[in-house]
């Protein structure tokens, strides 16, 4: 063996694999993790039990004979008020709201962020400051005048109205996201494109947007979860025919006549949580990036 002796026998103590503090650390993490997982577990087992079992057993026990009855009921037969069509209608409404809202809000945000970062037109600084403030203001400040304006323009209680609202309130985060990205690119790239004779839109579409794909993914994640999870805007602006899934879910749970069907409630709740949960687990690290980008405003 040519290995020098000294390097095979480090002078310090090798750290013990499981010192008491390590054990404590893992115990804390494990207990906290269980606490965090409990609601998901409870929702799941509840949704798989018949009502009789729920009344007799306790909420933590596994279902004796798992059944998907509550899920099918929640999807297609649960009642909101007088109609008993389940929350599938809400699901499709949410999809119809989600798709155009995500596309439009990202397009507007990307364009605004790009225009601000390289071209610095008149009013850009003031606009940016305004956007930063708005990101923090509760919707209650804007809602009533918005309702009035929308009914004047004729888009109150419509799909167009709710898409516009999501675009308006998504604008600060989307703009910030894209502006910060474009601001981090070397200015020389922009200059090179100008020397090559590319104009505003060509630089945007052919050079900048292809480089902004990762940010666009983050934006999609942020907007899909944000818009899907929205309650208050859907309640106020979507109108009776377009109520999103969250609003319908709340109605289902709160307007059940007679006996409360907790299994159906929990199945409906899980169904509503499914889309953001899928986005979260599929996107993994991107979701964290999205939160970090959306969170660190300014």
């Amino acid at each position: 063996m040519s290995t020098p002796r000294a390097s095979r026998h480090p002078s310090g103590r090798r750290p013990k694999r499981l010192s008491p503090s390590r054990v404590g650390l893992y115990a804390f993490l494990l207990i906290t993790a269980l606490f965090f997982l409990t609601p998901l577990y409870v929702m799941l087992v509840t949704s798989l039990k018949p009502m009789a079992e729920i009344r007799l057993g306790n909420i933590m026990s596994l279902p004796a004979a798992p059944t998907l009855d509550a899920w099918t009921t929640a999807w297609s037969r649960a009642c909101t008020g007088l109609s008993c069509n389940g929350i599938s209608a809400g699901f499709w409404n949410s999809i119809r709201i989600l798709v155009p809202s995500v596309i439009v809000s990202i397009m507007v945000g990307a364009t605004t962020g790009y225009a601000m970062s390289f071209w610095r037109p008149r009013g850009a600084k003031l606009l940016f400051a305004a956007l930063m403030v708005v990101a923090f203001i509760p919707y209650q400040v804007f809602i009533y005048p918005l309702v009035r304006i929308f009914s004047q323009v004729g888009i109150a209680n419509s799909l167009a109205g709710i898409v516009l609202v999501h675009t308006v309130f998504g604008l600060p985060t989307m703009t910030l996201l894209f502006r910060n990205h474009f601001a981090s690119l070397p200015l020389e790239l922009f200059k090179a494109a100008r020397v090559d004779g590319a104009g505003f839109w060509r630089i945007f579409l052919q050079i900048m947007m292809p480089m902004a794909v990762p940010i666009a993914v983050v934006a999609v994640i942020l907007q899909v979860t944000g818009i899907w999870n929205d309650f208050i805007l859907g309640l106020v602006f979507a109108g009776r025919d377009n109520l999103p899934m969250t609003v319908q879910l709340n109605n289902v749970v709160n307007t059940t006549q007679g006996e409360r069907t907790y299994n159906v409630d929990m199945a409906a709740t899980l169904l509503t949580a499914l889309v953001p949960l899928c986005v979260y687990f599929v996107s993994g690290r991107w979701f964290v990036r999205g939160i970090a980008a959306g969170a660190v405003k300014g």
């Binding site: 790239l189 494109a193 100008r194 020397v195 050079i207």
Partner: peptide, 20 residues
């Protein structure tokens, strides 16, 4: 405009379009 001046330019950071 830069494109109309009959100039070409080379930059310190190369400024190559990364996706092309």
């Amino acid at each position: 405009e830069p494109k109309d001046r009959g100039i070409a330019m080379v930059f310190q950071s190369y400024a190559l379009y990364p996706r092309m």
